[in-house]
Design a protein around this nucleic acid. Sequence first.
RNA 1: GGGCGUGUGGCUGAGCAGCAAAGGCAUCAGACUGUAAAUCUGACGGUCCCUGACCUUCGCAGGUGCAAGUCCUGCCGCGCCCA
Length: 379
Amino acid sequence: MIEFKILKKSKKSRARLGLLETSHGVVETPSLVPVATQAVIKTLTSEEVLQTKSQILICNTFHLHLKPGEEIVKKSGGLHKFMNWQKPLMTDSGGFQVFSLGFGKDLGVGKIIKNYKRKKVIKYRSQPVSIKINQDGVYFRSPVDGRKIFLGPKESIRIQEKLGADIIFAFDECTPPLAERKYIENSLEKTHRWAKICLESKKTNQALFGITQGSNFKDLRIKSAKFINSLGFDGFGIGGDLGESKEGTEKILEWTIPLLEEKKPRHLLGIGYLEDMENIIKGGVDLFDCTVPTHYARRGIAFVSTGRLDMQKSKFLKDFNPLDKKCGCFVCQNYKRNYICHLFRAKEITALKLLTFHNLYFFNTFVGKIREKIKNGKL
RNA sequence: GGGCGUGUGGCUGAGCAGCAAAGGCAUCAGACUGUAAAUCUGACGGUCCCUGACCUUCGCAGGUGCAAGUCCUGCCGCGCCCA
C-alpha cells in the first residue's frame, strides 16, 4: 500500500511536489531512485547509502532471481531486512533485461541512440541472440551460468511478491531503438496483455506500477498511456526507448503524462543525467531511477557543479581541492582530488566507494534543489 | 680464468632470415541514462602530400645474404655452473 500526496502543482509546468508514503517511510518527490540491482548500491553499505540522502532504492527481479533466488530473500524476512534498508524499496520487473540482454547486447546499443540516422535494423518477428520472446514471456540465458530462465508476467510478480519491495513493476518489454514500427506494435500488445496479467495475479498489498511503452511513435505512446491508465495500477512507469535525444524524451512525456491519472505517481524508467532532471520533472515526472551516478563513479567520473571530472586523469594528482568545494558530503569534507586520483590509478577499491558516495549525494542534493524551486514557484 | 646461457620498443615478453616487430602491463584519448558493466573501444618509434609513403629501431662494432632482431666474428653487460 502506498499513498501519494501532491503538495503543490507548478503553474509554470507539469512539475509537482509530493510525498509518497509507504509502510517503510515517506519519499519526497520528485526524487531520484538509486539503482541497487543486486540488493546493494555497489561499493556502499546501506548505512552509507542513507547518508547520501537517498530515500528509496530500486532492486532487480531478474538479478535477484538468479542470485541468491527469491526464496532466500523471503526466508531472510524480505528485501528490507535482507539488505538492512528500512526505507522504501522498489523492484524492477526484469522487463529492462528483455532489452539489455537481448537486442541491446546484440547491437551494442543503449536505449537512447544519439546517431539516430541509422536505419531500423530490428524487423517484426526478429529475435535477439541469447533470449527468446514469445507471447507468454521471455526465455533468458542466464549471464551467470548460461542456464535457461523463463520470465513472464506471472513469474515476475511471483518473484517480486517474495522479494517484498513496497513498490513493484509490471513485466514489460523494454523495446529497442532501431526497431521498425511493426515490431513496436506487436511488442506493445504483449506489454499490455502482460500488464493485465500482472494486475490479476498479484496477491499482496504491494503497490504495482504499470509501464507504458510505444517507442517514439506518438499514436502508440498515447494508446499505451490510455490503456495502462485504464487498468487501475497504483502508479505508472514510463519506459522503453525514449527517443533519439533529450527533446525526444520530453515529447514522449508530453504525449504520455497528460493521459495518466493525475493523483498517481509517475516514474520515468532509467533516465537521469543531471542535465535531464529539470526537463523530465517539468514534464511531470515524480520518480526516476538511473544508474549514472553509481555506474559512472566506478568508471572514475565525479559529477560536480562545474561538470564531470575524470578522476583517473593524471592532472588530478596535483590537484589539492576537494571534488566540489560547495558539496557537503563527507568525501568532499575529508578528501582531496589528488588522493582520490591516486586511489583510482592504484586500482584501490576505496576509490570506487568515495566517488559512488559523492555522486549519489550530489545527485540527491541536486534533486533537492529542484524540489525547492517547485516549492518557491520557480519551476 | 673456463663452460653454458642471455641481451627486443616505458616495462614485461613472443619472434630465430622477408617486421615497425604477437601478447600482457603502463600511458593517452573516447564511450557509458529501468547495471551484461571496478567495463568496453581506439591510439601507442618518428615524419609527411597520413585507407598510403618515407625515415629510424631489436646491447655495441663489423661481416655473410637480394633480404638480418633473426646466421657468423669480436667486444660489452647480465645469469648460472666449474676453477
